[in-house]
C-alpha cells in the first residue's frame, strides 16, 4: 500500500495516474467489498469516504483494516485536513482527529508516502 497526501485541489489523483500509466488501475471513492481481479485499487478522496462512514455510524477504521488485508497493493489518496483552525463543532473535530490518526496508521504501514503540493510530489517515507 502506498499513501498520497496533500491539500484540496493539489493534483493528487492526476499525479498518481501519471505514475501508474501501465498498470491496470481501478479508481474508486469508497472501499470495494469482495475480492479484486488483480487490478490496483486507487482509493481517491479517502477522507470523504471516511467521513461518510463516520456519519453513517460505521467504523471506518475497522473497514479499512479489512480492506487492506484484501488489497495489500492498493493506493490511497487523502486530503490533508488538519492544518486549520480546530472547528467548534464536535463532529468536525472528531472527523479531524479520527482521520488524522487513521492517516498516521496508514503512513506507518505504507511502503511509501508522498506529499503533493502544487502538483509536485515529495517522498516523505
Amino acid at each position: 500500500m502506498r499513501l498520497y497526501l496533500g491539500g484540496y485541489a493539489q493534483g493528487k489523483l492526476q499525479y498518481v495516474l501519471e505514475q501508474y500509466k501501465t498498470g491496470p488501475l481501478r479508481v474508486v471513492e469508497e472501499l470495494p467489498r469482495g475480492e479484486g481481479d488483480g487490478e490496483i485499487i486507487v482509493v481517491n478522496r479517502f477522507h470523504d469516504w471516511f467521513r461518510a462512514r463516520m456519519e453513517q455510524g460505521g467504523c471506518p477504521e475497522r473497514e479499512l483494516d479489512e480492506f487492506l488485508s484484501r488489497y495489500p497493493e492498493c493506493l490511497i489518496i487523502s486530503d490533508e485536513i488538519g492544518n486549520g483552525i480546530v472547528p467548534l463543532e464536535a463532529g468536525e473535530r472528531e472527523y479531524r482527529e479520527r482521520l488524522g490518526r487513521a492517516l498516521v496508521d496508514l503512513a506507518a504501514r505504507a511502503e511509501g508516502v508522498e506529499r503533493i503540493l502544487c502538483g509536485i510530489a515529495q517522498k516523505i517515507k
Partner: peptide
C-alpha cells in the same frame, strides 16, 4: 490555504479550486 478540511460555500470552493489550479 488548502489543508483545513473545511467545506465552504460553493463560491469559496470554486475559488479554492481556481487557486489550486493556478498554483499547479
Amino acid at each position: 490555504v488548502f489543508e483545513d478540511g473545511m467545506r465552504y460555500d460553493p463560491s469559496t470552493m470554486a475559488y479554492l479550486r481556481l487557486l489550486g489550479r493556478l498554483n499547479r
